[in-house]
Design a protein around this nucleic acid. Sequence first.
DNA 1: ACGTGCTGATACCCCGGCGGTATCAGCGCA
DNA 2: TGCGCTGATACCGCCGGGGTATCAGCACGT
Lengths: 282, 282
Amino acid sequence: MDTLETRELRYFVAVAEELHFTRAAERLGIAQPPLSRAIRQLERRLGVTLFDRDRRGVTLTGPGRVLLDEARAILDATSAAARRTRRAATAPHRLTLATKAGTNHELLQKLLEAYAAEPGAAEVEVLLCGMGDQARMLRDGRADVALMQRPFDDLAGFDTEDLLTEQQVAILPAGHPLAARTSLTMAEISDLPDLPVARWPGQDGSYEPGPGPEIHDQSQLAQLIALGHTMAVLCASSRSWLWSAHTAVPLTDAPYVSTVLAWPAHSRSRTVAGLVRVAAGR
Amino acid sequence: MDTLETRELRYFVAVAEELHFTRAAERLGIAQPPLSRAIRQLERRLGVTLFDRDRRGVTLTGPGRVLLDEARAILDATSAAARRTRRAATAPHRLTLATKAGTNHELLQKLLEAYAAEPGAAEVEVLLCGMGDQARMLRDGRADVALMQRPFDDLAGFDTEDLLTEQQVAILPAGHPLAARTSLTMAEISDLPDLPVARWPGQDGSYEPGPGPEIHDQSQLAQLIALGHTMAVLCASSRSWLWSAHTAVPLTDAPYVSTVLAWPAHSRSRTVAGLVRVAAGR
DNA sequence: ACGTGCTGATACCCCGGCGGTATCAGCGCA
DNA sequence: TGCGCTGATACCGCCGGGGTATCAGCACGT
């Protein structure tokens, strides 16, 4: 009745992404006619037109866009399911925790120590990944839990446990006039001509256009701030790695940042549950 | 390679739930041999043993339990995908909002009014359901958004927007000695021999054992409290429907309750987004 | 000890459906 | 008006899912 097979969803997503049956077919490694037929069958079974095929190409209909979102999530979930099942078999007492460079290191260390002291604790493998990669790692099953930051990271679809909430601070060169202030507002530090804010790479590795220098790690950032070339807005715990050439000034109107432990919703894994229990201090 | 077909997942879940191949097969409406073969194929493809079949029946292995969680979520997601796609086609400008009896009615009314005033607002259908049903409605695609309460409802897997946070109050018969107090603690009102706390039905419609009366709606509760037979702990906005025979006393140590608007993670639906934007006051 | 009834696994067959090739049909364009 | 491109249709072959019949292990009974 309403049994969307994953094969159909794969086909549908390919067509929806290419908006071109022939190209989608060769991407899938099949011929075009079976693909056309599969999509037609899907449309007939759902009783819904998913694509408009008029002169000048193929476009998604409204319901088609809805299904595209759902199908992508389902396909992610199936490959995640396979991966997690295999990992549960090959490494039954191992837990992969994804974190990104720049999240509170002491917090993680304390968490890991506390968890290791638990009876029956699993071996925890820490996976460092780039900005925003944790969500993908969690979604596709390559990680079991992740350290993430609200409101920066997209926590939709995960269960979370708050670990720490902290203020944001502006990291300035010690010699800069604003470094003498005891607090600052976002307005005061945005668009400073002599101190453009540093730019991190996005999910795809590219940089947004802007005046600030392009950076990709913390040591680089530290160097550039010390040289007086840039500044950055980070959470208060970043103070731990500052140099004497840096000054951290609290930002009164920036949103508070929570570091949270996140894991796939409804994971009933005993190992994940154990780590979460420790993290929650219970 | 790692293409779990939904048919395989359906079969797997059936066996995992029945722990009996023959019964699972007849539940699926197929014969037992093809089912055994399908599970064997799945195990071979994953390279993982999902069931232990020894004398004395079939049991799930550790990896099997992992896959069961994942498979259930995936099957829910596929039927939700089909339902949402169909609804997007048949009622493109309609939104179903799930709420449970007892959640703040004024809040909902204000939200609906504000949304209706938006240009291009969709028609909103309000669906009243029992305790904890909203999550299922949202997950299986029968609802697009839901009003839920933290920490009571399970918000895992949803995106949320906080609407209102409020204190909890004890609703007592006006004549009761404790009704004269200006505040109470949880300890003071638990296990009162003369005022047992009322019991709501669980997800399956059954009641936990306890001394209090079994109730199933608000008017029943109001009646029983007025008669001095029971009491209840509810959020502060419940004051709006109290009678003169009721008294609400703030509970200083009960957790605050947030009424939140919840929707499926990563829903990019324009109609849902519109309602959320209004709810967020943006 | 031996049959009996239960389980799931195996063997074999059949047919529906998936994927392939060949071809058609609409449409833009030189 | 042909040419090139698109997706749709027609037809065919074969793999694989599902069926029946049967086997094999194991806990019972007497």
